[in-house]
């Protein structure tokens, strides 16, 4: 970096923001691993002591058609935003603060939902997957809502809309290799992918055919 700066040239451009491993901006492919060789950390939390003295470190941007390289190590991850816009939310008026425990949620579902919601949308799953598939990301977003009563109402429409957008963005298909789970800095489980497949299948098979859109919703 200093080498280029001292010559008056642009230093290598890379994304960064929170520096505490929660924003997912610092997405780089380091020595064959998204976010580097350390397990369950983002690049900003990766210490140089994880490398040997004098070791050559190869840093690359995410390589996937839906993530075009903007400059050096910065990629455009708008594709993820588009997927979220397709259904990664709950369309209710928030209103006032609800009473605690007004809606009972089983502890196991709350935990699974929180685990899925830990996804920071960094794109490491896409970068790690040999197919550049975004299934882990999409499934985490689908799961975090599908597991909770507030999210169930729109679960069938949500999963179909998000999968359709994921395909439209040009991500690859999941081959259940598990590289995404192994490399995810937030250790999101591929059981979420199975849940998404299950949600998608039941939405396609069981959900009634909607004849006309009545406004609102997904």
């Amino acid at each position: 970096m200093n080498h280029w700066s001292s010559k008056g040239e642009d230093p290598v451009a890379f994304d960064h923001d929170c520096r505490e491993g929660i924003c997912g901006a610092c997405s780089m492919y380091i020595n064959g691993h998204p976010h580097g060789p350390d397990k369950a950390v983002t690049t900003c939390q990766l210490h140089m002591r994880k490398f040997k003295d004098g070791e050559t470190i190869v840093i690359e941007p995410w390589r996937a058609r839906p993530f075009p390289v903007l400059k050096d190590l910065i990629v455009d991850r708008t594709a993820f935003d588009k997927i979220i816009q397709a259904g990664g939310y709950i369309s209710v008026n928030t209103g006032g603060i609800p009473d605690a425990n007004a809606i009972p949620v089983p502890k196991v579902n709350a935990d699974l939902s929180m685990d899925a919601a830990a996804c920071i949308g960094c794109g490491a799953c896409v970068a790690a997957c040999k197919n550049a598939s975004a299934m882990l990301f999409v499934s985490a977003k689908v799961s975090q809502f599908a597991l909770l009563p507030q999210g169930r109402a729109e679960a069938a429409e949500r999963v179909q809309a998000m999968v359709a957008e994921m395909d439209k963005q040009g991500f690859g298909n999941c081959t259940n290799t598990g590289a995404c789970e192994a490399e995810c800095p937030k250790e999101i489980s591929i059981s979420n992918i199975a849940r998404m497949n299950r949600e998608f299948l039941s939405a396609r098979v069981c959900a009634p055919k909607i004849k006309e859109q009545t406004g609102g919703g997904i």
Binding site: G32, K130, G172, A182, E183
Partner: peptide, 19 residues
């Protein structure tokens, strides 16, 4: 489709601990 999703390969290919 999977091949098309990654037109540029990595210089250092990944070797995750998977099947």
């Amino acid at each position: 489709q999977n091949w098309l999703a990654r037109p540029t390969r990595y210089k250092v290919e990944g070797f995750s601990h998977t099947s």
